[in-house]
Design a protein around this nucleic acid. Structure first.
Length: 350
DNA sequence: GATTCGTGGAA
DNA sequence: TTTCCAAGAAT
């Protein structure tokens, strides 16, 4: 059976079962808004559709087009991105918008090669935007496609080693007709039918082409190299409330690196050893005592677990620290990562 | 090729 | 509870 034989049944399945999503073109001939496609693809990097659905509408309301996004301060973008994670995506999204305005007359580049040059746009995202927004016959390879190809061709090589081979296989299936719908169909299939773990082969539209199904290996594929386990880092956060109005002291993090450009509660560095007994004086030298909370805040990041001891104080003294006072009722609108919101919430629940 | 980048939901 | 995972990119 020729490779191209999966395109027709996949497209038919997609026409019948595709999800309605705010960044997608409506069923039929209407084209997707390239800016919506670009924005959604940035958000969907390593993030579920369900999560993105809570952020995308607010973004297009605040930044209706790429010009609005480019013209806005990065801080506004980070504020709307807060809680979505992987904040380099937000910084790159803003850079990409500026590049589109400055170098492409405010129009999203319409080829995979040009898209690939934008900040934050890698091989997958360039192919996805080219295919979905401009119907270029680009081959998208995300983790869904990797899984579908590994099963379709019964590829036993563990990821990420198998990535190049899976990409080559995927390219052999990409059709010239409706490549945008095909790309989304393949990813929809991976996320709803050919799911990780035990796949739903009973409702798969391309089951007759699947080598792993025939061999009974589908549930074991794709294989992956084992991951290194997550270490624990310890730190202390100092939550300062202004005595007369309960405003809280926050400071900006460095523009790059982890949580780059976001706001934070001041505190110690996060180290591999316990810092619960470290004197606040070294990091927050003030003439008032801090009250440590009983239970630390725990938070799981992508590559380590943080255990943060929280210490609070009330004062009208100006802290000897970069930063500013923020009214508590503005916290939901600030560029605060989830761990910092957790720390504040714990401090207030006294 | 290996690491660094968040978060929330499901298994 | 712990682990895995999700429309990955940059270094």
């Amino acid at each position: 059976m020729p490779p191209s034989s999966i395109a027709a049944p996949l497209l038919a399945w997609y026409d019948a079962h595709q999800r309605v999503l705010p960044w997608r073109a409506r069923h039929g001939t209407a084209k997707a808004n390239p800016y919506y496609v670009l924005l959604s693809e940035f958000m969907l990097q390593q993030t579920t559709v369900a999560t993105v659905l809570g952020y995308f509408p607010r973004f297009i309301e605040r930044f209706p087009d790429v010009n609005a996004l480019a013209a806005s301060p990065l801080e506004d973008v980070l504020s709307l991105w807060a809680g979505l994670g992987y904040y380099a995506r937000a910084r790159n999204l803003h850079k990409a918008a500026v590049a589109v305005v400055e170098h492409h007359h405010g129009r999203i580049p319409n080829t995979e090669a040009l898209l690939r040059q934008l900040p934050g746009v890698g091989a997958y995202t360039a192919a996805a935007i080219a295919a979905i927004a401009f119907d270029e016959a680009a081959t998208v390879v995300d983790s869904n496609v990797e899984r579908v190809m590994a099963r379709l061709h019964n590829i036993d090589t563990p990821l990420p080693t198998a990535k190049k081979q899976l990409t080559q296989l995927a390219a052999t299936h990409t059709p010239q007709r409706r490549p945008g719908c095909y790309a989304q169909a393949l990813m929809d299939l991976g996320s709803r039918v050919c799911v990780s773990g035990v796949p739903r082969c009973g409702v798969c539209p391309i089951i007759t082409s699947c080598a792993a199904q025939a061999l009974g290996t589908a549930a074991t594929l794709p294989r992956k190299k084992p991951k290194t386990l997550r270490p624990t880092r310890h730190g202390t956060a100092f939550v300062l409330f202004r005595a007369h109005d309960d405003a809280v002291w926050l400071r900006p993090r460095p523009a790059s690196g982890m949580l780059g450009g976001m706001l934070e509660v001041p505190g110690t560095p996060w180290l591999e050893h316990d810092t619960a007994d470290m004197a606040p004086a070294a990091y927050m030298p003030m003439a008032i005592p801090f009250t440590p909370l009983n239970k630390p805040v725990e938070h799981i990041f992508s590559h380590f677990r943080a255990v943060i001891t929280v210490s609070t104080a009330r004062t009208d003294e100006i802290p000897p620290d970069a930063g500013a006072w923020y009214a508590l009722d503005t916290v939901p609108t600030l560029a605060l990562p989830t761990v910092m919101k957790k720390i504040l919430k714990r401090s207030i629940a006294l």
